[in-house]
Design a protein around this nucleic acid. Structure first.
Ligand SMILES: [Mg+2]
Length: 229
DNA sequence: GCGACAG
DNA sequence: ATCTTGTCGC
């Protein structure tokens, strides 16, 4: 299975869909084994129409939430943005950034979906499985799934996200009172409830978890800095 | 065929 | 995703 798990990133959309369907069967959705001592945020930065991008992971201690380590990797984004196939566009850069970390995180939160995905295999699931690290998807907008009733307005209010078939695939979580909620779903080695718990635990006064905010900010700075040198 | 559509 | 300062509202 390691051959399939470590498939090349150089594949086309049709095969990417097949890879997702096969790898999805290997996900382990279960309570997080232990409280994490470190949590990482992962994201990439790219230009409007440019192919150049920088991917990065930023590691924080928990519960102190102090910066422990960070790693970046830049390169060409060959795969186009196709809803449902985001991991094939961002995966290589994120994987290389992870490999460059000296302090491997106990949990990684990705800017995108986990199992709240048409084939149950969003970027958090793909990278979590591939890297063998517990992971969560925390997206700023919806890709797949619906809630039965609107989520409450208070911070911490949440509702399950259901697939059209009625399966629980994630959650819609209010991380700030009266502000648009985030879409949380397990990636790998964690379940829905613990995903909600840890996204909240990593969130302070803003809508997004600190690790995602930091990752987003740092990859943006790195892209600007590496553009020339 | 039509509508939806992470970043 | 990214372009960008000020501005409006709690
Ligand atoms: Mg992103």
């Amino acid at each position: 299975m390691t051959d399939l798990l470590h498939h090349s990133w150089e594949i086309a959309p049709p095969e990417a869909v097949r890879v997702q369907k096969t790898l999805e069967t290997h996900l382990a959705l279960q309570p997080l084994s232990d409280a994490p001592e470190t949590i990482a945020g992962a994201d990439i930065s790219t230009k409007w129409r440019g192919r150049f991008g920088v991917g990065g992971m930023v590691v924080f201690s928990w519960p102190d939430m102090e910066l422990i380590d960070e790693s970046f990797h830049s390169g060409e984004l060959r795969f186009p943005y196709v809803p449902g196939l985001l991991s094939f566009r961002e995966g290589l850069l994120l994987e290389k950034a992870f490999l460059g970390l000296r302090a491997k995180p106990d949990l990684i939160i990705f800017d995108g979906q986990g199992t709240a995905h048409p084939r149950g295999f969003g970027i958090a699931s793909h990278l979590g499985l591939r890297l063998g690290v517990p992971s969560i998807g925390c997206a700023k907008s919806r890709l797949f799934g619906d809630v039965a009733e609107p989520v409450g307005e208070e911070k911490g209010d949440w509702r399950y996200l259901y697939s059209p078939g009625g399966r629980k695939i994630g959650a819609v979580l209010r991380t700030r009172r009266g502000v648009k909620p985030v879409y949380v779903s397990p990636g790998h080695l964690i379940d829905i409830e613990d995903s909600v718990h840890w996204v909240l635990a990593a969130t302070s006064r803003f809508r997004l978890p600190e690790v995602i905010r930091a990752a987003h900010r740092r990859v943006g700075e790195e892209r600007a800095r590496r553009k020339k040198a």
